[in-house]
């Protein structure tokens, strides 16, 4: 298993290097520089700015210099925000994004799994169709529609929760977490329904019923164990998706997260910020996918034995 993880980590290095290289040259190819502005920039100012950020050097020099800094964990200064380093902005934005992702995950698991289990108990009945079609709606409804809708109903009309903000007013994290969770909730509902359906037709469930256990105990104690495995395996990729896909929700609810920086950085041609966030997201996605694979192996005794016997 350790060898499997090590191999995967080593494979990640060339992937990251490709991501860095492609992004580095692509952002510099895009027309419009970080310092172009509506008001003309005087030549001497432009010169000073380019010298400050090494843009007056040959691109290939910039590239290796960037790689060198990166090896030391230094993402460089932001072009758009002169007083901020990219490291600092990531440190400021990542916690909000991670927290949002975590809450969204909780909502998605709680609501999605419950809906899926309920649906699976009486397949092809109203008890199945209603939660499952609601779940379908959750997949179809984009967050830029659902977010404002939730804001309007719960923020403006009912005044239960604030419309936007992050940690300023109690409850301001609920709507964004729900919005971000919606698509994942739906997917988890479908996964858990499928998982439960399969498990509930197994022999050992029949045995459990035959020995006279009450139905709720059969479902919660015996059914759930097996039925939730696909859901658990999905958590890794889902979390990677939640982290890197939160920018719409962050923009709508004005959450000081990393997703918002990412999008703004692209519009601003903030080269170092684009690089920093891209590298970070790429790393996170690689890590979470690795995690998902590890969990998959760990959950599946056949694969586990395969790795244990060194047959990877």
């Amino acid at each position: 298993m350790a060898r499997f993880i090590l191999m995967r980590l080593l494979q990640a290095i060339p992937v990251l290097l490709v991501v860095i290289t492609v992004t580095f040259f692509l952002v510099r190819l895009a027309p419009g520089g970080p310092f172009s502005a509506e008001k003309a920039v005087p030549a001497e100012v432009l010169k000073a700015l380019e010298a400050r950020y090494q843009l007056d050097q040959p691109v290939i020099y910039q590239y290796f210099s960037y790689l060198g800094d990166l090896a030391h964990g230094d993402f460089g200064p932001s072009f758009k925000y002169p007083g901020r380093s990219v490291n600092e902005m990531i440190a400021a934005g990542l916690p909000a994004t991670a927290e949002l992702g975590l809450y969204a995950m909780c909502f998605a698991l709680l609501i999605g799994a419950s809906a899926g289990i309920i649906a699976a108990l009486k397949p092809n009945s109203a008890q199945d169709y209603i939660p499952m079609s609601t779940a379908m709606l959750g997949i179809c409804l984009p967050s830029f529609l659902l977010g404002p809708l939730l804001m309007l109903v719960f923020g403006v009309w009912l005044e239960w929760v604030p419309v936007s903000g992050w940690g300023d007013i109690p409850g301001d994290k609920i709507l964004p977490a729900l919005t971000l969770a919606s698509g994942y909730t739906a997917y988890i509902a479908r996964l858990s329904r499928g998982g439960m359906l399969e498990v509930m037709s197994q022999d050992y469930i029949r045995t459990a019923r035959a020995k006279g256990l009450p139905e709720w105990k059969v479902v919660l104690k015996h059914g759930l164990r097996g039925g939730m495995i696909p859901v658990i395996a999905f958590i890794g990729p889902a979390f990677a998706g939640l982290l890197s896909g939160s920018f719409v929700v962050e923009t709508i609810f004005q959450i000081p997260g990393l997703g918002r920086f990412y999008v703004q950085a692209a519009f601003n041609r903030d080269y170092t910020m684009i690089m920093g966030t891209t590298v970070l997201f790429a790393t996170l996605i690689i890590l979470f996918n690795l995690l998902a694979d590890i969990v998959a192996v760990w959950l599946n005794p056949r694969l586990r034995d395969l790795y244990r016997s060194g047959g990877a």
């Binding site: 164990r225 495995i229 395996a233 999905f234 959950l299 599946n300």
Partner: peptide, 16 residues
Amino acid sequence: MAPCIPALPTQYLRPQ
């Protein structure tokens, strides 16, 4: 998306 895994109860997992 999720890998297809045979439904087997494991002692590590207690979803409840």
